[in-house]
Structure formats: C-alpha cells, structure tokens
Amino acid sequence: MQIPSTSVPPVIVPGANAGNATAVDGTALGLNGENAATATPVNPTPTSAAPLRRGLNNWDQPLQGDISGAQQALDFLEQSAAQLRNLKADISARLASRQRSDGTLEARVRQFSNSWRNRGSASGGTLDAGLKFSSKGSSNTTFSVRGMNLANLRNGGREVLAIAVGGGQNVRSVVLEPGLSDAQIAQRFDEALAPAGVRAALGDDGQLEFSTPEAQWATVRDTLAVQGNGTRFPSGQLNRVKAEADPAAVDPDSWQTADADGLRATLQQVVQALAKVEQSIASVHQALNQVAARVQKASASTGKGGMEQVAQNFVSTTSKPGYQSLLSITSALAGISRERVISLLALRN
C-alpha cells in the first residue's frame, strides 16, 4: 500500500538536577514543645548542603514508585506461578490416569488465560509481553521492522530515510552513511523516532530492535511507512513496512487439552512458561534489592549529617537581624517555662 508522497523534512543528524529545596519542619522531625528548636521552617543558605529528608513520606517519589511497581509485579508473577504449577500437576495427572475430562483442567486454562490478558493492569504496567520488568510503569511492545536490520542498514551509500508513524503528517528523517557503527545506527533511529513514541536500541542479540508503549502498538503497526532514495528502500512515495511484535513469553490461547497429544504439547509449554515466570520473579527481586540499597543510602544520609544541617540552618538564620531571626528564636523558646529554667539552674548548685 502506498501513501501520497510527502516532502522530506529537515534532516536529523545527532551531535555529539537541580534538587528541590524542602523546608525543615520540627513536627516532621518529631520535635515538640521545649525541644522544638526548628519547629518553624528555616530558610537554608544558598551554600548549604542538600535539604534534610526524613522518613518514607519525604523520600523522592521515583523511589516509592519503584517499590510499588516491583511489589505489583511480584504479586502478579507469584499468582501466575501458582496457577502454572497447578496446571502442570493437573495435566500430568490427566496424562498418567488417562481419565476423561471433567472440565477442571479446561477451567484452569481459562483462568490463567484471563489473568494473562490482564497482565498490564495487574502488574501496574511494569511487565511487558516478554515478562521484562520496568519500574517506569509503562510496559512496551518490542518489535522488528522488515528491512530495518543491521545487515541491510550497514550496506550501501548515503541515504536519507523518511519514516512516518501515525500518518503522513508525522514524518521524521534518518541519515544512513557508510562507516556507521551499529550503535550509531541505533542512536540515529532512536533520536528520530523518539518524538513519535518509538524507541530504537541494540537488543541482547546485537540486532536493532524497536519498542513502543503497548497502548500505541496497534497504531504503530498499522501506520509505519518508509521512503528512501532507492538504495535500501524505494523512493518516490512512503511505503508501508511490516512491523512484527516479538513473541510473547506465554501464549495460553494456543494451549490444547482435547486429546493426549494436545495435553503433552500444552504440558511442555506450561513448563516453559513457568520457567520464564520464575526467571522474571528473580529479576524483580534483584530490582527490589537495588531499591533497598537506595533506601539504606537515603536513611544514612538523614542521620548525623541531617541534624548538623538543622543546627547550621538555625545558626545561620538567627545570626541575621530580621523577622526570620526573631521567628526562629521565639519558636525555639516557646516551650521553655520560668519553672523549667529555675530547675535547670538549680542543678548547677
């Protein structure tokens, strides 16, 4: 299928945190009454260290998101593993006894198939169809494009590819030249297609692979088109190219239970699926361990150094005349009564 010719847009050729200050609150630190030396927010000096962070509620949101996403993924994976183990036992028992179906096995297959269809929502978007975990909460579909393999892209002279995603109005350009490395080729595709929601990278097998959010996959698959100058792709008009999603880790819709041969084939697929689920569980646990290390690091940074920061902020503020200085001092003295001062002075006698 051809799309009317579109002029090639400007060529894209790749070239070569500031923290948020947080006011220190004595209540958040658990300081009340006579101990509330910093109960009123104190403005840190521009040269002060990073603001004090205390407790999970004050940690960075990405950290909390990573923990939540990993827990959702584990819940889904562990439930799936339990269902697969039950399926494995039921199929083995059916094959061993040669009993006729009573509907139990078929019901278990339907149950797992329904669970798998809800993978995206059940895992919070952290698991893609290949059971690859991503803490970003947006599972992707990884796919390949016919003709866009490294063996084809490396060869030939200079060529400018116009690539359309989502229709002829959204066209991006990629320049291919002799001598580009595989990583450079992947980078050029990635930089050109990223605004259209498509990313490119070298896969684990060293081949060029593309990915897009699962919700966008159908649009990308049905609208992806390329125009070249005749070197690697036809010139003249944008031509649709075939995009194929990588096989899913599990395909329960293909499982058969009607006869012994179908049961044996299904048993083999269930065993393979269980192995992939367990492998994914291990990868999520590894991600959780990395988050735990970040938690420990964040906790350590809020110990002695954090209290020193509180003291430094207080001294800095009270040393300057003005409203903030008066406010900080009166807040620090708010819980100190005459009787308490007398009793403390009596200890010196």
Rank of each mutant, 00 (worst) to 15 (best):
residue 9 P to L: 13
residue 10 P to D: 12
residue 13 V to A: 02
residue 22 T to M: 04
residue 32 N to Y: 10
residue 34 E to P: 01
residue 39 A to F: 03
residue 39 A to I: 08
residue 45 T to M: 08
residue 51 P to F: 02
residue 52 L to E: 05
residue 53 R to V: 06
residue 58 N to L: 10
residue 62 P to V: 06
residue 67 I to A: 11
residue 69 G to Q: 15
residue 69 G to I: 09
residue 72 Q to N: 15
residue 73 A to R: 10
residue 74 L to D: 13
residue 78 E to I: 12
residue 79 Q to A: 13
residue 80 S to Y: 13
residue 87 L to Y: 11
residue 88 K to P: 03
residue 89 A to N: 11
residue 90 D to A: 15
residue 102 D to T: 13
residue 112 F to M: 09
residue 117 R to M: 10
residue 118 N to W: 07
residue 123 S to F: 06
residue 124 G to R: 14
residue 125 G to D: 14
residue 130 G to I: 00
residue 137 G to P: 14
residue 137 G to E: 14
residue 146 R to P: 00
residue 150 L to F: 05
residue 152 N to V: 12
residue 160 V to R: 13
residue 163 I to F: 01
residue 164 A to H: 08
residue 172 R to H: 05
residue 174 V to Y: 09
residue 175 V to R: 08
residue 178 P to I: 13
residue 179 G to Q: 13
residue 181 S to N: 07
residue 181 S to V: 06
residue 188 R to K: 13
residue 188 R to C: 04
residue 190 D to K: 10
residue 192 A to C: 03
residue 195 P to K: 11
residue 196 A to I: 05
residue 201 A to L: 05
residue 202 L to Q: 09
residue 202 L to P: 02
residue 205 D to K: 09
residue 208 L to I: 06
residue 208 L to W: 03
residue 212 T to Y: 08
residue 218 A to N: 08
residue 220 V to N: 06
residue 220 V to H: 09
residue 227 Q to L: 13
residue 228 G to A: 10
residue 231 T to F: 00
residue 232 R to W: 04
residue 233 F to G: 02
residue 234 P to M: 01
residue 234 P to E: 10
residue 236 G to Q: 11
residue 236 G to D: 04
residue 237 Q to C: 00
residue 250 V to F: 00
residue 250 V to A: 02
residue 252 P to A: 09
residue 260 A to T: 12
residue 262 G to Q: 08
residue 266 T to F: 02
residue 269 Q to A: 14
residue 272 Q to M: 07
residue 275 A to L: 05
residue 279 Q to D: 14
residue 282 A to F: 02
residue 289 N to P: 01
residue 289 N to G: 15
residue 290 Q to V: 08
residue 290 Q to P: 01
residue 294 R to E: 14
residue 298 A to W: 01
residue 300 A to G: 01
residue 311 A to C: 01
residue 315 V to H: 11
residue 320 K to I: 08
residue 324 Q to E: 15
residue 330 T to E: 05
residue 331 S to I: 00
residue 332 A to Y: 06
residue 332 A to V: 06
residue 333 L to E: 07
residue 333 L to F: 06
residue 338 R to L: 13
residue 341 V to H: 09
residue 343 S to H: 12
residue 349 N to F: 10
